[in-house]
Nucleic acid binder design. Structure first.
Lengths: 166, 166
DNA sequence: GTGCCTGCAAAAAATTTGCAACAAC
DNA sequence: GTTGTTGCAAATTTTTTGCAGGCAC
């Protein structure tokens, strides 16, 4: 359901799920934190789902493995993942926060289907260049940006056209 | 504090505050709603402030004129203004919803200073064209979009540079 | 008078936090 | 054993809603 920007292929393909857990372990150790079963479970679920997950969805996935994991733990773990750069929080229009895996993934923006909720990632250097230029012309130095395009994906448009003669 | 996109001058200048109230009155009448003092007060305050106001700020402004106006009324009135196209809700990173006046104002996007919170509007047709093109290439038909550039405004950068060498 | 509007307080929804029990090193 | 972690529930924050009384027409 989720496309990756351009054709960038990542080493390891689906196997890339393994590496972030090592990064997490390193981060945990380095900061004098402790290892925990729940944390692993949340991280594993998160990386195996692989894209734009809401806390609610993640809690569901985690609880399939362990019914007793609390919402608070999932929130706390996701913040930890964000802190060590393994997850990026995304806040789409009217929705609750979602997280996407970030390990080694380059910057990109999002297309969001208002029909089915599908989220497609894209990257466009020319837009980035123009953004930087606009910012500069206003004396701003850009630190981050958010570009979200909301609309109907091809499938939803087809469905709509099929349903009613226009 | 708020720049308008490009050099588009609007007829009436600051006097343009008057017209929206007439539009509101028409909308209210047309839909069989009733006129109220509080509603006028909220709308007046909103249009006289003139840009990117949070409900909290607006409540503050309104209460300077009438201490008893409730938060609920402000929320309800702003939704009414949004319904009749006189205000647009904007949700910036981590902040509560803000509203900006929309009467006759063309589309634009935002630069937000992460230092002082200043919000600058801008419009860039080339970015819009590229956005539409990207969307099309993914089979999407864009309905709306959100482009926000976060960074430091000139003043905040100057201040930072002055404070620390390096 | 009828019906929309208001203020208040309670409800909702999403997220955070205090705390006592618990687990990791 | 010390210290970080967890689950639970309560607190927070922002916004919405139910309701009884009030105001507009």
């Amino acid at each position: 359901m989720i496309e990756t920007p351009r054709d960038r292929t990542r080493p390891g393909g689906r196997g890339a799920e393994r590496e972030p857990l090592a990064v997490l372990a390193g981060h945990v150790e380095q900061r004098g934190l402790k290892h925990s079963r729940q944390r692993d479970l949340v991280a594993e679920s998160f990386f195996s789902i692989g894209g734009h997950v809401s806390i609610e969805e993640l809690v569901g996935a985690v609880r399939r493995a362990d019914r007793r994991v609390s919402v608070a733990t999932v929130y706390r773990t996701m913040r930890l993942l964000a802190d060590c750069g393994l997850a990026v929080p995304r806040q789409f229009e009217g929705e609750q926060t979602r997280y996407e895996p970030a390990a080694g993934r380059p910057h990109h923006d999002h297309l969001i289907c208002t029909g089915c909720g599908e989220i497609v990632e894209f990257a466009n250097d020319r837009i980035e260049v123009l953004q930087a230029r606009v910012a500069r012309s206003h004396g701003f130095q850009v630190e981050s940006h958010k570009l979200e395009l909301y609309g109907r994906c091809a499938r939803c448009r087809r469905r709509a056209t099929a349903g009613s003669a226009g």
